[in-house]
Design a protein around this nucleic acid. Sequence first.
DNA 1: GTGCAACCTGAAGTCGACTTCAAGTCAAGC
DNA 2: GCTTGACTTGAAGTCGACTTCAGGTTGCAC
Lengths: 162, 162
Amino acid sequence: MGPTRHDLLTIGQLAERSGLATSALRYYEKLGLIHAERTTGNQRRFARSTLRRVAFVRAAQQVGLSLDEVRTALARLPHDRAPSSQDWTAVATAWQSRIDRQIAELQHMKAKLTGCIGCGCLSLTRCALYNAADRAAEAGPGARYLLTRDPASGPEPGPREA
Amino acid sequence: MGPTRHDLLTIGQLAERSGLATSALRYYEKLGLIHAERTTGNQRRFARSTLRRVAFVRAAQQVGLSLDEVRTALARLPHDRAPSSQDWTAVATAWQSRIDRQIAELQHMKAKLTGCIGCGCLSLTRCALYNAADRAAEAGPGARYLLTRDPASGPEPGPREA
DNA sequence: GTGCAACCTGAAGTCGACTTCAAGTCAAGC
DNA sequence: GCTTGACTTGAAGTCGACTTCAGGTTGCAC
């Protein structure tokens, strides 16, 4: 099954080449992330550039963006032609700082764990991990990947150990 | 509202002290993550140690564990008494390597972005980012945080640029 | 002994990112 | 021109981690 005709891909071909399911691609189209022309018989035909767009979406997801955020990011790139180096640099640096934040949070967490291994405590009053988890959890449900430490969460009346 | 009586906490008190909603605590109980005794009138009363247990759950979630995995992890710790230093060290080191993996993936992604900024390409054939995203996305739906690059995904018949 | 906040239950709803399903239509190779 | 696989649609289902709701009960201060 080589490419059937000129530059337009069927949804099946796009799926195969992008590694996504056709259902996902339809979903993306509904969200406005990608666009398809239609044959007289109402079947989708995707421009080859859609492959690039889809890849962009997946990459953005890996960085932690929601599809809604991806839509915004895509809106900033030129509509359906190749983005310039500048366009791309802006996006990529934004993503990098996002990644940096995520890494920083992970390292913070790791440092806490190290401390806890040292002390072996799991002490309610002393353990940094507890104080980390304590109030650190209002990031809502759903696709949280790694969130939120919340320093200085006010002095609690010290409880006895359990 | 000081602690009303001895060492048992109502669900409201536990909620306040742990920073979780009562609904979440009931949910945790249903999953078997925490345990409550009951008054004659069927109201929950939590041991003080539950606070520790809840903190453990939240900390584990931050590391990226699902509640189901947390249940497993909790099962490895002594039932409702303070875990020993050894118990804890085992868990914490496991978590650390998890964190390390996550960090590594993020750094991998970041490196790719840096490369892409350099080349400014968004080239279908050359850009590492595309090849990363290309087949990297079968981690199922839901709380994926940062996943999966999939090296060596077979040579595709090189497409022209879009 | 009464008022009311806090508690109880099970069922259903929510969110994001999809997948699955049913029932029908299109494209193209023979 | 017919068959068959790829496509179409909208609606509903899934998953994890909860929240919200409705309708009823308990605990405790006054």
